[in-house]
Every structure is written in C-alpha cells, then in structure tokens.
C-alpha cells in the first residue's frame, strides 16, 4: 500500500511498488489526462507536478512518490475556474491534436511557479523536455508569456488573487 497526495487529496494505492506513477494515476485512479508517449521520459506527455516539479511519470515507480504531493492536469483548475495558463491556452488555440498538452501545461505551470516573469530563453529551457508533433511551440510560448504578464501584473496588485493561482494551492497545503 502506497500513500501520497493526488490533486490535494490523500490517497492509498494497493498496487505493486514498481508500477510507474503514470499507470497508477491512469488505470488505478482513472485520471486519463496524463498521457503515455514514449515510456523513456523523453517526450514529457506524462508530466505531473511532484512537489511542484514537472516530473516524467512513465519511468517513475509509484513508490518514489510515497507521502509526496502529485498534481495532474485534472488538479490544476479549481473546479470550473481554469488557471491563467489554461485560459491563455484556450485563447491562443494552442492545442492541435492535444495529446501532449497536459504535459505542456504541467511544465508551464512549474515554470511560472518558480519564475513568474520568464524570458524567451527561460521558456525554451523549461519547455524543451516536452515534445509536440503538431508544432504548437510558438503558441505555447506566446500563451506562457501572456499568462506570465497577467500573473506579474496581478501579483503586484493583489498578492493572492484567485486568477493567479496557477500553482495548485491544495498541493502547497499537502506539502506543508
């Protein structure tokens, strides 16, 4: 039995300890937003936040997240209130086939949490682990910049505005 926090809730999984976290989340907890792409940590489609870091979960045994906080694409929005990044994604029509976009949004979320005003090269560095075969990179970059602009603006005016909570607050609680 392995216990961890999944999207803010404490969960127990009676699964083999070597089962990759991706498949535990998809097949055991039935959250299908995180995707299988390469099985080698090369494409980023399986990315989840583990203690706030964008992490490749297709190669991460579930035992490695015992008592840690895991956030998936399903855990980013607060009910119907999408994060600033998700709103920017929709406004820029970022997704094409959409298969990689959960992983892209997880990596972008981790970036803005640690660096609220990233430069182009910061974005390149943070996002280079996430492949997109449809070539949505120019729009991903623009959406991150737009969301960051809003985040920066908002955080100077209201430190804890709901709209700027691209970082899952429940996850922060879970870690504490």
């Amino acid at each position: 039995m392995i216990s961890f926090h999944l999207n803010g809730q404490r969960v127990d999984a009676d699964v083999p300890p070597d089962m990759p976290l991706l498949w535990v989340v998809r097949d055991h907890f039935k959250l299908k937003g995180s995707k299988f792409g390469c099985g080698m940590g090369l494409c980023g489609a399986c990315s989840m936040l583990v203690d706030g870091q964008s992490t490749r979960t297709c190669i991460l045994p579930v035992a490695a997240v015992a008592n840690r906080a895991v956030t998936t694409i399903e855990g980013l929005a607060d009910a119907e209130q999408l994060t600033t990044l998700q709103q920017a994604w929709i406004a820029h029509s970022v997704p094409q086939c959409g298969y990689c976009q959960s992983g892209q949004l997880i990596s972008a979320t981790a970036l803005l949490n640690s660096n609220p005003a990233p430069s182009d090269s910061d974005i390149d560095t943070a996002m280079q682990g996430n492949l997109c075969r449809c070539g949505t990179y120019p729009r991903i970059k623009q959406a991150i910049k737009d969301a960051a602009g809003q985040t920066t603006k908002a955080s100077t005016t209201a430190a804890q505005s709901a709209a700027v909570q691209t970082f899952d607050p429940r996850h922060a609680e879970a870690k504490a």
Binding site: L31, K32, G33, S34, K35, F36, T72, I73, E74, L76, A77, L82, Q86, W89, I90, A91, S93, V94, P95, G98, Y99, Q101, S102, L105
Partner: peptide, 19 residues
Amino acid sequence: RPRLDGRAKSTGSAEFGLD
C-alpha cells in the same frame, strides 16, 4: 474564433483512444 476543442484539450478531458 478559438478552437472548439480548446477547452477539453487544455483540461485533460479530451478523450483519445488510449483513454
């Protein structure tokens, strides 16, 4: 106009064969 599948594909709810 924005893509009609943009929201589903930005929230992880779009269903692919593997899902």
